[in-house]
Design a binder for these strands. Structure first.
Ligand SMILES: [Zn+2]
Ligand SMILES: [Zn+2]
Ligand SMILES: [Zn+2]
Ligand SMILES: [Zn+2]
Lengths: 142, 142
DNA sequence: TATACGATCTACAGCAACTGTAGGTTCAAG
DNA sequence: CTTGAACCTACAGTTGCTGTAGATCGTATA
């Protein structure tokens, strides 16, 4: 049995983040000391490690909740788990595609600016007028 | 002179977003009708277009504020403008690098899973244990 | 055993950048 | 003059935390 601070250290999480996960029901309510302080065991350590690692791989808390629920049914097919991961992969790929388009535009506008004065700055020109762009980029970056 | 709805339509912005920009001082307080409704002109249209296009290129509202301020001094050197754009490019590149690392891990764990049962799912195994990963990925994706 | 002091407690505010809602008012077309 | 779409303010909610204040707890040391 160990304290929230120890759990935090062992998982590279902030104490408040752990309490936040508890608040939204992602971490279970742990036992308490007589004085009211949280006490954790290895089950909670594993669960939090899972959550943190999934976060590092970009999964949303919603997706992580789903994955945790699924892993409670070891006999079921893992097709749903795989689907969650596939979806995450597609999202990552979509974000990469968007960012690569941005990179092209940014590089171009930076390289085209040889001006000294703000009045002639190519960067500001492009920002004022999308005609100076190659790609579409409708939605502001998420 | 036109209404906030017209301005919204012409710039592809939501009405609330325009009011939000006004609230945080990114858009100026416009004139009003006798009844209290906002009325805009071409100056505001240009400014909002600039803001929206910059957002589409991933600039933060803080950066956009800086760019707008800089563009008010047409005689000054555009070095600062260029610096803001450079910084944005570096951020985009950093995000791409992080996402590409995630993509590798996700692809790998998906391809490695040939299990039928949740109990043997490779995806869950990797999520439980970072040892199954190739790259580091310390901070949860921003 | 007493004391000190770091760790923990609750509750709430704040971040970015919006989006959505409720309840009321105004504008403009017919 | 009526009607209804558009507008108004004010505030709550989104995601995933992070920071703060003021009080309490736990434990090592004297
Ligand atoms: Zn320039
Ligand atoms: Zn553009
Ligand atoms: Zn699987
Ligand atoms: Zn890993």
């Amino acid at each position: 049995m160990f304290s929230i601070g120890t759990l935090a250290k062992r998982t590279g999480t902030k104490v408040q983040t752990i309490r936040y996960y508890e608040q939204i029901g992602l971490m279970p309510e742990p036992g308490r000391t007589d004085g009211g302080q949280r006490r954790y065991g290895d089950v909670e350590l594993d669960r939090l490690s899972f959550i943190r690692h999934s976060r590092q791989l970009g999964f949303s808390l919603g997706a992580i909740r789903e994955l945790l629920d699924l892993s409670d049914s070891p006999e079921r097919s893992c097709a749903q788990v795989d689907a969650v991961a596939q979806k995450q992969l597609r999202e990552v790929e979509a974000r990469i595609a968007r960012l690569e388009a941005l990179r092209v535009e940014l590089r171009r506008m930076i390289s085209e600016c040889n001006a000294e004065r703000v009045a002639d700055c190519r960067i500001l020109e492009v920002l004022r007028d999308h005609e100076g762009c190659l790609s579409d980029h409708q939605q502001p970056t998420p």
